[in-house]
Design a binder for these strands. Structure first.
Length: 592
RNA sequence: GGUCCCGUAGCUCAGUUGGAUAGAGCAACAGAUUUCUAAUCUGUCGGUCUUUGGUUCGAGUCCAAACGGGAUCACCA
């Protein structure tokens, strides 16, 4: 049983026995650094009902805990704050319980399932920094939900059709001259992205030319020859024109080869992939259903709408007058499909905050339609990643490309590692593996440590660091621990329960206190869909351990019992760091 | 203009759901290595928590308004 739970139970009993008050929610908080103790119970809320001064209540409960709890070693009362210190035997007992439990921090299956949809790339351009935030968030949230007891389905909806794809196709057909990833040596997704940029360049030139002839900009955007041709291409694709479809398939193959490479590099995978080319016609039956139920209505031009003004939203189009789909139509269809496929209790969409409104509307419609799964739907909205130079735009080529960035980080890791010269016995493959682990650790940690809903600024010059509050800092702490564990192993020291005779330093108590908090942190992170909570937790843990490291020695401790205790403590910290980083999709090296 | 999100140290961010004297990292400066990995540790410097009201024993946290930044309000996806 957890220390916190034990104390809470005793406080409950104390309130009952001393004041005859039944209280089922006892809130404890960590004691502030400047005060003596670990757990603090605030008595202010009880002063009114008990009609006693806060200090008196604190003293009475403190005295009770001291006598009856068996784990409170001393207490002090400051104003209405009852601060409790814990006996060393209780700390050691807590460590013994958590250190030897391989599943510590993970919650048992709760019988519920959740789908996390993320990544959802467009097939006309390679992944950039913004996509990385999406991918890392989705992957990490999936891991966190799994650790908290859910069965998780990771889904990806590939946006593989539409006018944007046709733009790349058109530019390629006009200018490609048969270029292939093989012939050019360019990665497939980058090759397609190149033609997307080329389209945009030419398109802009055509607009300017038309404007120069006196046509309005708006008109020019519609009348530019390449735009007309791209739209023609889309029509042909929808009609199944064999030549168009063949080109589309060819270019898709290249893009997927490129994507798979990147996904593998960043360690992201999916359980189910949906392709929009298969699902874009779905949803029309939902529109029919909505019309029958009177949820939707038809306007004179035959278009179908929903009126959501009662929910504080607007009227929203769900089907065009000519009977063709819009984004919302498709999403209604795919959401039904996803539910039919997996019957998930919850469904999470990891999508940027520019689509907040879309999801508000989608969820409102699902409720109106009486979908049973509507309650479990959640949009995990995250802010953009901005550059010092402004926004990233694929069309204009002003993006931080994902592959380039990872490459750059790996070479920074290499430079740094070489300077330190600690892995000279590594072979080339081992070294490359290490640089990759460090590069991704730094990048993932950097993108995940910030609250998802905040937009973040990425300064390539200084943002991603290897020192301080970073992934490599935490990886380094793990490496130190592994070094100790290897040496302990060489000395044939077995990992056993620590004896309770040892007298602990404050920092050792603090570490156990922090370790004991891990399971509830996992639960919090799952509840809030926030990897940032895990990142804060593991950073704090690494800092505490480094503090211990500077203060005492593990293996050179002369007192045997204390030495074994510290080895066990080190193991527990190492395991918890590894688990935490794994929840963020970050790997740990043995040495660095 | 309507709606939503954000505003904390020079910079990047925490702040455990309303608790004590608001914390980290970076940057700057000063120290620590005969000892388990110094990608580390210790210290100094740095604050009108955007502003003004309100709620109460108590507000960075909750409510209202204003100001500043962003997103969105397409028969694009």
């Amino acid at each position: 049983m957890q220390l916190e739970a034990i104390i809470q139970e005793h406080i409950q009993n104390a309130l009952k026995e001393i004041y005859n008050v039944e209280e089922n929610q006892i809130a404890l908080q960590p004691t502030k650094k400047d005060f003596e103790g670990f757990y603090t119970f605030v008595t202010f809320p009880y002063t009114k009902s008990l009609r006693k001064p806060p200090v008196e209540i604190g003293n009475a409960i403190g005295q009770y805990l001291l006598e009856k709890s068996g784990i409170v070693s001393s207490f002090n009362v400051v104003q209405g704050f009852l601060n409790l210190s814990i006996a060393d035997e209780a700390w050691v007992k807590a460590l013994n319980e958590l250190a030897l439990d391989a599943d510590f921090g993970f919650w048992p299956a709760n019988g519920k399932s959740v789908m996390v949809e993320f990544s959802s790339p467009n097939t006309n351009k390679p992944l950039h920094l913004g996509h990385l935030r999406n991918n890392f968030l989705g992957d990490s949230v999936s891991r966190i939900l799994k650790a908290s007891g859910y069965e998780v389905v990771k889904a990806c909806l590939v946006n593989d059709r539409g006018i944007h794809i046709c733009k790349s196709m058109l530019a390629y057909a006009k200018l490609g001259e048969g270029e292939t990833p093989q012939s050019s040596g360019i990665k497939g997704d980058h090759l397609i992205g190149k033609y997307y940029v080329l389209f945009d360049k030419e398109y802009k030139r055509q607009i300017e030319a038309l404007v120069a002839e006196g046509i309005s900009k708006e008109e020019a955007e519609k009348k530019a020859p390449w735009m007309i041709e791209a739209q023609e291409l889309l029509r042909k694709w929808e009609q199944g024109d064999s030549e168009t479809v063949a080109l589309w398939k060819q270019m898709n193959e290249w893009v997927y080869a490129g994507f798979n490479d990147t996904y593998q590099k960043i360690g992201v995978s999916f359980d189910k992939t949906y392709y929009e080319s298969n699902t874009y016609l779905l949803g029309k039956d939902v529109v029919e259903e909505g019309l029958e139920k009177g949820v939707f209505f038809r306007k004179d031009d035959n278009s179908v709408w929903i009126d959501l003004t009662a929910e504080g939203l607007d009227q929203k189009l769900v089907l065009r007058g000519d009977g063709t789909s819009v984004y919302m139509t498709q999403d209604l269809g795919t959401t039904d499909l996803k539910f039919q496929d997996f019957h998930n209790d919850k469904s999470i969409w990891v999508v940027g905050n520019e689509q907040d409104y879309h999801f508000q509307v989608l969820f409102a419609i699902l409720k109106r339609l009486g979908r049973t799964y509507a309650e479990g739907c959640h949009h995990l909205s995250y802010g953009m990643v901005d550059l010092p130079t402004g926004k990233m735009k694929s069309r204009e080529g002003t993006v931080v490309d994902a592959d380039d960035l990872i490459q750059e980080m790996a070479s920074t890791a290499e430079t740094r590692t070489r300077e330190l010269g600690k892995i000279e016995d590594f072979n080339s493959e081992e070294a490359q593996q290490l640089y990759h682990t460090l590069a991704l650790g730094a990048l993932k940690y950097f993108l995940l440590k910030v609250d998802p809903k905040k937009r973040m600024l990425f300064n390539p010059e200084e943002s991603v660091d290897f020192q301080g509050h970073t992934g490599p800092f935490i990886q380094y702490t793990y490496v130190r621990i592994r070094s100790v564990m290897r040496k302990a192993d060489q000395q044939n020291i077995e990992l056993v329960k620590a004896a309770s005779v040892v007298s602990l330093a404050k920092i050792e108590q603090e570490i156990i206190f922090h370790l004991a908090d891990f399971p509830s942190k996992v639960a919090d992170a799952a509840r809030d869909y926030s990897p940032a909570l895990i990142s804060q937790y593991v950073y704090e843990l690494a800092k505490l351990y480094n503090h211990l490291w500077a203060e005492v020695s593990v293996l050179n401790e002369p007192e045997e019992a204390l030495k074994y205790f510290r080895i066990l403590l080190s193991k527990a910290v190492g395991d918890t760091i590894k688990k935490s980083l794994d929840l963020m999709g970050i790997g740990v090296p043995e040495r660095m």
